[in-house]
């Protein structure tokens, strides 16, 4: 269960004062959404758990800089996005398509079933990395192309192209 944590809740204030018990309270209320984001973006359960943990460690380190201009959960979510993109940045050249990162690779990873039986989650997991990241951030999490481009360090056009590609591949996978 994930709760919307107000910007200046008592737990946020206590955590900012160094109270780890209060930070655990915030963790309990938000971990589902943070983990959901990490899992969808990286599709590896073990890696998703590690990135989730790293997101909270990063959040604790940055707590003093949280001014309450947004919901705490929104602030935390953006940290998690940065952690996941940072993980990809080193190994996958950001959102730029890589060699072999194409529709054929997607089809090989997608489930064998078709039509309505096709699980959208599994289809998303089978997308090439750049397309998957763009789709999850834009169409599931609601980030704009400007935000995605800024955080991933790519051009807005790259984010749009990857999203278009993801939608096209998913439509194909979900078609009867």
């Amino acid at each position: 269960m994930t709760a919307v944590v107000p910007a200046r809740s008592d737990a946020v204030r206590r955590a900012q004062a160094g109270d780890l018990e209060a930070f655990e309270e915030l963790y309990r209320g938000t971990v589902g959404r943070v983990h959901g984001l990490c899992l969808r973006m990286c599709r590896d359960p073990q890696l998703a758990e590690e990135l989730t943990q790293e997101s909270y460690i990063r959040a604790w380190q940055k707590l003093a800089s949280f001014r309450g201009d947004s919901l705490f959960s929104t602030w935390l979510h953006r940290i998690a996005v940065n952690v996941v993109l940072g993980h990809f940045r080193g190994s996958l050249r950001r959102l730029e398509p890589a060699a072999g990162d194409d529709a054929e690779a997607f089809e090989a990873a997608a489930p064998a079933t078709s039509g309505l039986a096709l699980d959208l989650e599994r289809a998303i997991a089978g997308l090439p990395t750049g397309a998957r990241v763009a789709f999850v951030l834009h169409d599931v999490e609601g980030f704009t192309h400007d935000e995605i481009a800024q955080r991933a360090g790519v051009a807005v056009g790259t984010s749009k192209a990857q999203l278009s590609r993801a939608r096209r591949l998913l439509r194909k996978a979900l078609s009867p």
Binding site: M1, E24, L39, Q53, L120
Partner: peptide, 25 residues
């Protein structure tokens, strides 16, 4: 497709409690 994506659950609980690892770190 966009309707299906919008209907996906935003929260996915981890398979284990991650807090001990965070606290320990």
């Amino acid at each position: 497709l966009l309707g299906l994506a919008a209907g996906l659950p935003r929260a996915i609980e981890p398979s284990r409690d991650l807090w001990p690892g965070i606290e320990g770190s």
